[in-house]
């Protein structure tokens, strides 16, 4: 499997299943998911952390999988859009809301938007502020997500088809 100096065995739990691979140190999580595990839900839009299409959850937090070397994630839990709803056949509430609101067109940014939205809900529940949260808002308490909060927090996910209003509505549907 290539030069040992440049490859390492790495174990990740992906969508609940342990996966052990010998990875080229240069392999980023996005490429590992797409090329090695055939989990192509996470998309490559820019490969440089500038578009958000590759967003997945690592240990429950949303991240750009194109900027994370897989080897550095040994032992981490990764959830992709394919695993968002667990083992069930039923889609995740966010996925259902995106469908109902027609919150996408070409679909390429959609998995990233959905994973990002899942991260947003968790962050707000944990009391993480955003750029538009009032500085005086109490720490440690869930931050109510109004439209402005949703828009700001999802701004790391570009959508060139312009589905933004529908995406914000879909996220609101899940909150309420």
């Amino acid at each position: 499997m290539g030069n040992l100096q440049h490859h390492s065995p790495t174990t990740l739990r992906v969508n609940g299943k342990p996966r052990t691979l010998t990875v080229d140190h240069r392999r980023v999580l996005l490429d590992l998911l797409r090329e090695d595990l055939d989990l192509t839900g996470a998309k490559k839009g820019c490969d440089h952390g500038q578009c958000g299409a590759c967003t997945v959850l690592v240990d429950g937090r949303r991240v750009n999988s194109c900027l994370l070397f897989a080897v550095a994630l040994d032992g981490c839990e990764v959830t992709t859009v394919e695993g968002l709803s667990g083992d069930g056949e039923e889609p995740h509430p966010l996925q259902r809301a995106f469908l109902e609101r027609d919150a996408f067109q070409c679909g390429y940014c959609t998995p990233g938007q959905i994973c990002s939205a899942a991260g947003v809900l968790a962050e707000a529940a944990a009391g993480h502020p955003s750029h538009v949260t009032a500085p005086a808002a109490p720490s440690g308490e869930p931050v109510p997500l109004d439209r402005e909060e949703i828009r700001e927090r999802l701004s790391g996910n570009l959508c060139r088809c312009g589905a933004y209003p529908r995406i914000a509505e879909a996220v609101e549907d899940v909150i309420s």
């Binding site: 958000g52 967003t55 900027l67 991260g119 500085p135 720490s139 440690g140 701004s155 790391g156």
Partner: peptide
């Protein structure tokens, strides 16, 4: 998000939140 940062050094919290995206800040 740290309470001490938010309340004692709001400029720092605000500066961090003005940068990049939620994913990158994570």
């Amino acid at each position: 998000a740290h309470p001490l940062v938010r309340h004692r050094y709001p400029a720092l919290s605000q500066a961090v939140l003005a940068g990049a995206s939620g994913q990158l800040r994570n």
